[in-house]
Nucleic acid binder design. Structure first.
Length: 98
DNA sequence: ATGCCGGCTCAGC
DNA sequence: GGCTGAGCCGGCA
């Protein structure tokens, strides 16, 4: 993936405030030429020592994607005050607006 | 170059 | 809303 796109993704993720979340798809659409899936891999391959709030990026269904760090992700979000309903979803109003 | 495997999504049921 | 199947496309061996 082009470095420029990666920069955009990082910038957008970095702009999501604590307690709010956004989705892979939204990020993909905000960038030029990134697909939701590529945003996923971008999060997966974050360089060591990064300081991005990757945990604030969730799926379009507003659930956490099931991957290795899902447990940590959920904890981090809850620590920021993000609530999950009985079915494990984040309320829509938590979405970071464009 | 090729093939396989994903931190996804969307349209149909 | 939940489940499924099919596109999609970047990383990595």
């Amino acid at each position: 993936m082009r470095a420029e796109i990666l920069e955009q993704i990082y910038t957008i993720v970095a702009s999501v405030p604590a307690g709010r979340v956004t989705t892979y798809g939204r990020i993909a659409r905000m960038t030029e030429g990134a697909s939701a899936r590529s945003v996923g891999t971008a999060m997966r391959t974050l360089p060591a020592g990064h300081q991005l709030p990757w945990h604030r990026v969730i799926g379009a269904s507003r659930r956490l994607a099931d991957h290795g760090g899902a447990g940590r992700q959920r904890e981090k979000l809850q620590a920021e005050g993000v609530v999950f309903d009985a079915t494990g979803r984040v309320p829509a109003q938590r979405l970071w607006p464009d």
